[in-house]
Design a protein around this nucleic acid. Structure first.
Lengths: 346, 346
DNA sequence: GTGAAAGCGCTAACAC
DNA sequence: GTGTTAGCGCTTTCAC
C-alpha cells in the first residue's frame, strides 16, 4: 500500500520498503546483477506491492538512450504507410522499443519540424522522406536514420550520407510497368507523377517505353492521394489525344482516377488501361480490380526497423536484400488491339 | 563550432560559451525570466552556434511531465483510426505535444501491454479500447485517459471511472440504420457484429427493427477488417433464408462482404442492401458506392485530444458535444418492393 | 538581473 | 553479494 506521497513510487521507496540500497534495487530490476534469493524476493515483493515502474526518462538521462524510435511518414491514411508502420511496430515491440509516430501531412516543412522535435527523444528514426536528400542528410548526422527511399541514382544515394536506405527499387518498378504496357500494344502512356518524389519510377517507365517508341506524357500532382487522382483525372483524360494507358505514382491516385473516369463515362480497361503502385488492400477490391505493382510495404517496415535497431545497438549484420517488386495483373488493364479486324473476342 | 566532446551540447556548454550560469541559460531558453539584452544576445548566439537542443528526458525527470501523449488504436490500417490519429496529431502539434502511437493489432492482451509501457512515458492517453471497461479503468487511475467509446449504457460508463469518453453515439448509429432499412421495406436484416465490441450499435439496430416486426440475425466476427467481412460473408449469404439487408460493424467489413458477394454472383443492391459504418474514404468509391453512417473519425480525434490536453493542463473547459452520426445513403442499398406489381420504375 | 546550491529518479564505478 | 558515491542534464528555490 502506497502512502499519501506525491507521484508514483520511485526506486527509493522500493529500497526503503525492502530494506536494501537503491543500487541493489536498480540492479535487480534491470537484471544486471544477481543477489541472494532472500533479497531478490523482498525486492520483487516491494516492487509488486508498490506497483513500481522505472521512470524511463530518468533512465534515458543517464544512459543517453531512450529505447524509442521515431517514425515519420507523409500520411498514415495511405495504407502503404500504415502497413509500413505495422511492420516497424512489430519489430520494435519484439526488441523492446517504443515507437514515436508522426504524420507530416505531405508537407516538407512540417516534416523537418517533426524530425527536429523527434531527434532528441529517440535513438533512431525511420523516415519516408519528402524532404530533399541534403536536408535529410543533415538530420542523419545527429541520429541514425533509415529511409524508405531507394534511389537508383548513385549521386543521390551519396547525398544521403550516413543514412541507411532501403526499399523496393523505383526504377525497376517503373520498368516493369513499361514493359508490361509495351507488350500489351499500348501506344500512349500518361504517367501521373508525384511532384516532390524521386524520379526513379518515371525514369524506369520512360526507359522501358522509349525503346519501343511509345509516347509517355507526364502529369504532376502534389497529392499522392485519392483526391490527387480525382483532380488530375480531368487533365489526363479529357484533353485531346487521350492516352490508352494511365499509370499513377501510387494506388490511391489510381483509385481517384478510376472513380473520376467512371463519372466521365469511361470504361476501364476498355477505354484505357490503369496501373497503380503498392498493391494496397483496396486495390484488389475495386471493379475492375486494379493492376498494380506490389511494393511489400509491411516487409519494408520490418527490414528498415531491423536494420535501424541493428545499427543503434551496434550489431553488424548483413544488409538484407530488398524485396523485388511484383506486377499484379488484374482487370484494370488489357492489351490493345489497334489493327486487328473486328473479330469478336479472342 | 563544437569541439570533440562526446554527445550533443548541454546547458553547461552553452553556459560556458556565453559566460553565464547554467540557471541563466535555462531561464532564457525557457523564456521563464528576462535578462539584460546583452546577456540574452550572448546566450542566444551560443545556443545557435553550438546547435543546442534541450534534453527532453532530463526536463521530464524534474517536471514530471513529458509533453507527450500516447495513442493506442486497434489497427492503423483502418482508415477510421488513421483519421482519428490525424486529428489527434494536429491538435497535439498545435499545442506543443508529441504523439506516441501504438497499434494493438486488435489484440486485448497486447493493448494492455502497450498501455503499461506507454503510461510512464506520457502525460495522458487516447485509447480506442478493445479491453474491458474494468481493465481500462485501472489504467485510468494512473494517467488521464480519453476513450473513443461512448457507451449509452450508464453502468458501463461508470465502470470507466475517471476516464473521459467521447465518440459518436453507438445506439443512435444503430437506430438510424434500423429506421432506414425498415422504411425501405426490408424484412430480414443480418448484422455482422464485432465480437469484442460494445453492443450499442446492435441494440440500437434491434430497437429500431423490433418495433416493426423485422427479423434481425446476428453474426459475429473477431476481425473488424476486410478479411473479417470476406470470411463472414459465406455464413451470412449462403444459408437458407437469406437476408434482404446486411449491416456490418464497420465499412471495412462491408467492403469484404461486397467483394465476396460479387464472387458468389450476387448483385448489390438487387439481392440485398448493404450498409456499413464510418464512411471511410473508400466507401464512396466502390461500385455500387457504399451506404454508411459517417462517424466523423477525424473530428473525434480532434475533440479527444483537446479534452485530454485540457485535463492534463488543468484547463476547465466545457465538454464538447460529440458529432451526430449521419446516414450517407448511396448505391449499395435500395428499397424492397415485395408486393408491388411489376410496374416499371417509380 | 544573476548565480549558487539542491535535487529530480536513476545508473555506474568502485569499494568492501 | 551489497552499499557508497558521484553525477547524467536539467529546473527551481532562494540568496544577493
Amino acid at each position: 500500500m502506497k502512502s499519501a506521497s506525491a507521484g508514483p513510487p520511485t526506486l527509493r521507496h522500493v529500497a526503503q520498503a525492502s530494506q536494501v540500497s537503491e543500487s541493489t534495487v536498480s540492479k535487480i530490476v534491470n537484471r544486471t546483477k544477481r543477489f541472494s534469493p532472500e533479497v531478490e524476493r523482498r525486492v520483487q515483493a516491494a516492487v509488486a506491492e508498490l506497483g513500481y515502474t522505472p521512470n524511463p526518462h530518468a533512465r534515458s538521462v543517464i544512459t543517453g538512450r531512450s529505447r524509442t524510435i521515431g517514425v515519420v511518414v507523409a500520411d498514415v491514411l495511405n495504407p502503404h504507410f500504415a502497413l509500413l508502420i505495422k511492420g516497424v511496430g512489430s519489430v520494435a515491440r519484439a526488441r523492446g522499443y517504443t515507437v514515436l509516430l508522426t504524420d507530416s501531412d505531405e508537407d516538407s516543412d512540417l516534416e523537418a519540424e517533426l524530425l527536429g522535435t523527434l531527434i532528441p527523444r529517440v535513438d533512431g528514426l525511420i523516415v519516408a522522406p519528402r524532404l530533399e536528400a541534403q536536408v535529410v542528410a543533415q538530420f542523419a548526422r545527429l541520429k541514425p536514420l533509415a529511409l524508405t527511399a531507394r534511389p537508383s541514382d548513385l549521386a543521390r544515394r551519396q547525398a544521403l550520407g550516413e543514412a541507411l536506405t532501403f526499399g523496393v527499387d523505383g526504377f525497376q518498378t517503373g520498368q516493369m510497368i513499361g514493359h508490361y504496357l509495351a507488350q500489351g500494344g499500348h501506344r500512349h502512356v500518361s504517367y501521373l507523377h508525384l511532384a516532390q518524389a524521386d524520379d526513379d519510377r518515371l525514369r524506369g517507365l520512360e526507359a522501358a517505353l522509349g525503346g519501343q517508341g511509345i509516347r509517355c506524357t507526364v502529369h504532376r500532382s502534389a497529392e499522392p492521394s485519392i483526391e490527387g487522382g480525382l483532380r488530375a483525372a480531368t487533365a489526363m483524360l479529357l484533353g485531346e489525344d487521350r492516352p490508352d494507358a494511365v499509370v499513377t505514382y501510387n494506388d490511391l491516385m489510381a483509385l481517384g482516377v478510376l472513380a473520376e473516369a467512371r463519372k466521365f463515362g469511361f470504361e476501364v480497361p476498355r477505354d484505357f488501361s490503369l496501373v497503380g503502385v503498392d498493391d494496397i488492400p483496396y486495390a484488389a477490391l475495386t471493379s475492375p480490380p486494379l493492376t498494380t505493382v506490389r511494393t511489400y510495404s509491411r516487409e519494408i517496415g520490418v527490414q528498415l526497423a531491423e536494420a535501424l535497431l541493428d545499427r543503434i545497438e551496434g550489431v553488424d549484420r548483413l544488409a538484407p536484400t530488398p524485396p523485388t517488386p511484383q506486377l499484379m495483373v488484374r482487370g484494370s488493364s488489357a492489351p490493345r488491339q489497334y489493327e486487328a479486324a473486328p473479330v469478336g473476342r479472342g
